[in-house]
């Protein structure tokens, strides 16, 4: 698993080429590598968005409207859970608990957690990030 994390961090996802190389270096079959990859939500076989938006859907966030928040984001991005936008800018996901339960609802964008989240807050976060990268 440390190898899968490391490769995915570098390349963004784990494609066939990676699987073959990993299988060879660990002296196991391709199937065994795929076996592990497909068990875990974090590992991905296909390219995902630049921003992975994980909307917490666990109980504490449910108590403050995370289901509505997810619906709003779904219709804003026109994406379902697990889908990536055509331009690969955004992937929408659900997650179960970010450990920020006293400031619900919570959303994680890549590695940043946003507490007391609202769709406005998330869109503002994204446009600010995009501005910064445009100016770079």
């Amino acid at each position: 698993m440390p190898a899968l994390h490391a490769v995915q961090k570098e390349l963004g996802h784990l494609d066939n080429e990676c699987i073959k190389t990993l299988a060879k270096s660990f002296n196991i079959s391709n199937a065994e590598v795929i076996d592990v990859i497909t068990y875990y939500d974090d590992f991905r076989l296909e390219k995902e968005g630049q921003y992975i938006i994980k909307v917490c859907q666990a109980e504490a966030c449910q108590s403050l409207g995370c289901r509505t928040l997810l619906d709003t984001l779904k219709s804003h991005f026109e994406l379902d859970i697990g889908q990536t936008s055509n331009d690969h800018s955004v992937t929408l996901k659900e997650v179960f608990c970010l450990g920020n339960c006293a400031l619900s609802p919570s959303v994680m964008i890549n590695e940043d957690v946003i507490g007391r989240a609202s769709s406005e807050k998330i869109l503002a976060y994204l446009s600010e990030k995009q501005n910064i990268s445009h100016n770079d």
């Binding site: 698993m1 068990y39 974090d42 179960f96």
Partner: peptide, 22 residues
């Protein structure tokens, strides 16, 4: 580091995961 699986908090599943398996 885990990879987004709740059941890996169960001790035997956690051991499997540390050993690099499902």
């Amino acid at each position: 580091i885990g990879a987004g699986s709740y059941v890996c908090g169960e001790e035997t599943a956690m051991m499997e995961s540390i050993e690099g398996k499902r």
